[in-house]
């Protein structure tokens, strides 16, 4: 008997890629999962920094899916390579800063490289024809196959019957008759199939699989590009955009203020890289100053941060300031009232 064919499955942690992998597993193919960390991924933990999300299971959905399917999962750090996709997307952006078509081409391309290096035969994704406006269309599917270099080795089990047969189908590695013809935005067929597979628990990502589809996030990313040293970023920049309130009272600096304990703990890890401040005698947030702040700026930042402390209604609040690579000292300030903070300072 020939050894089973091997497929690498793009596993996002959502239902579609889980179903696609399960369909192929049922055909006796050896499947391993691959998942990419771009820095923009929406996974449970980034949200779980915040306490109010504490009730949600703190888990990485891709790992969880792999465990449910009984397959290995390879999580690949593509932060550096992905920058070019976000900064210079050949096919442009979607509704926000989401370069979905370039992104899909990139990820399938990475999976194609992995497939070649590990002696696998084909790639599967959970794409559904017509489900997403940019990357899951009849005219963009071939673009992904071509630009990724995957060509005919890219199989989309959930909608394969609506597409020309691929190599795994023609070679009989998988039975095309047992693949599906899902199309459109309705989730009903997927939910029915999940029931059939006895899958009762799965993540339901709203909107997209990453922060680049989130307008609140992308507004802050735009701000970073417009006020920093141009259109580029480091991993720390984009991670910090997920945490805290961001206020830009002056073009040359912004404040990142923790909203609760989880965020304050996370910001603590960055405090040595920034001038930072917190209330000296009250409970309140840690704030990082991102940019170049002079004495007046620090005073303004202290008044703003005091606004988000328990001393917000007092005439004077003592704030501890630690300058980056510099002195630590206390200042007494009058907290801003909420009316005094212009809306446009909030990013």
């Amino acid at each position: 008997m020939n050894p089973p064919r091997k497929a690498v499955a793009l596993i996002s942690g959502g239902l579609d890629s889980m179903l696609a992998a399960q369909l192929i597993l049922e055909q006796g193919v050896h499947v391993e999962g691959i998942n990419f960390f771009t820095g923009f991924c929406v996974e449970g933990h980034t949200h779980a920094i915040r306490k109010h999300d504490g009730a949600k299971p703190k888990r990485n959905n891709a790992l969880w899916v792999a465990e449910q399917l009984g397959i290995k999962l390879h999580i690949i750090d593509v932060v550096e390579e992905y920058k070019d996709v976000v900064l210079n997307p050949k096919h442009g952006y979607g509704a926000h800063l989401n370069p979905c078509l370039d992104c899909k081409g990139f990820m399938v391309g990475q999976a194609r490289r992995w497939m070649e290096e590990h002696g696998f035969d084909f790639i599967i994704t959970g794409e559904v024809l017509g489900q997403r406006p940019m990357s899951q269309r009849r005219d963009t599917f071939p673009v992904i196959a071509r630009e990724s270099g995957a060509g005919e080795r890219l199989l989309r089990p959930l909608c394969a019957q609506l597409l020309p047969p691929t190599l795994p189908e023609r070679e009989g590695w998988v039975d095309r008759e047992r693949l599906l013809k899902f199309s459109g935005r309705s989730r009903k067929p997927q939910i029915a199939l999940a029931e059939q597979f006895n899958i009762s628990e799965y993540a339901q990502p709203a909107g997209g699989c990453c922060f680049l589809t989130d307008p609140n996030y992308t507004r802050k990313l735009q701000d970073l590009w417009q006020t920093g040293a141009g259109k580029h970023y480091e991993l720390d920049d984009i991670m910090l955009l997920k945490v805290g309130r961001h206020l830009r009272p002056r073009p040359h600096f912004k404040l990142i203020i923790g909203r609760e304990e989880g965020e304050n703990n996370y910001l603590e890890g960055y405090r040595r890289q920034f001038t930072h401040l917190r209330p000296a005698e009250h409970n309140g947030s840690l704030a990082l100053i991102d940019g170049h702040a002079g004495a007046d700026d620090i005073h303004l930042a202290a008044r703003l941060t005091a606004r988000f402390s328990q001393g917000r209604d007092l005439a004077s609040v003592r704030m501890s300031v630690t300058e980056k690579d510099g002195p630590a000292y206390d200042v007494d300030v009058t907290p801003f009232t909420s009316e005094e903070i212009p809306q446009e300072w909030y990013l």
Partner: peptide
């Protein structure tokens, strides 16, 4: 793996 958010510790 301090100060890394998941999935970086796993990676």
């Amino acid at each position: 793996a301090r100060n890394l958010l998941c999935p970086l510790p796993v990676i």
